[in-house]
């Protein structure tokens, strides 16, 4: 079953452990600049939003790549960069609407989230479940349930007040 990474920014504590484990997992170094996931912060308001590749269906990075280095994994459905083919032109970095493509100045090639080949470390380490890995058919089902719960709570309150 194909799975998605979903982000619930409300739950994020802003600790950036995901960045740490991601860079260790993929590069063997601790360096958030080389992490596939990054937490964007507005510290003055206490808002933290983890940003990560959405594995788009009609993916601009894949479409723009002049040497077809980016392709979809047939088993897990994520987009991957073939490091043998990548020429480091950074076209994908420029076009990604989420800023989810990274450029590694050491290897002079681009990198992106590959879902750790099916066991995303950001999800494994996030204790508050701000990042989750869920089957495609459940993504909206979960959101529906949460939305409905809010609605029902509001209705109950309204009834009580009325």
């Amino acid at each position: 079953m194909e799975k998605f990474l979903t982000v619930d920014a409300d739950k994020c504590t802003g600790c950036r452990l995901c960045e740490q484990v991601c860079s260790v997992m993929h590069e063997g170094v601790s360096n958030p600049a080389k992490s596939r996931i990054q937490v964007v912060k507005w510290e003055q308001e206490g808002v933290y939003i983890p940003v990560i590749c959405k594995q788009c269906e009609d993916a601009p990075c894949m479409n723009v790549c002049p040497v077809r280095a980016i392709s979809r994994d047939p088993d897990f459905g994520f987009l991957k960069v073939d490091q043998e083919v990548c020429i480091g032109c950074r076209s994908c970095v420029g076009i990604c609407p989420f800023g989810a493509m990274g450029y590694n100045p050491t290897t002079r090639q681009v990198f992106k989230c590959d879902l750790c080949g099916g066991d995303p470390q950001c999800v494994r380490f996030c204790e508050v479940n701000a990042v989750e890995f869920v089957p495609v058919d459940r993504v909206s089902a979960q959101k529906k349930r949460r939305g409905a719960a809010r609605q029902s709570a509001a209705e109950r309150q309204a009834t009580a007040l009325g």
């Binding site: 600790c15 452990l17 206490g46």
Partner: peptide, 9 residues
Amino acid sequence: TGCFGCQVH
């Protein structure tokens, strides 16, 4: 909220 890399928040 938490410090860097800490899950105690």
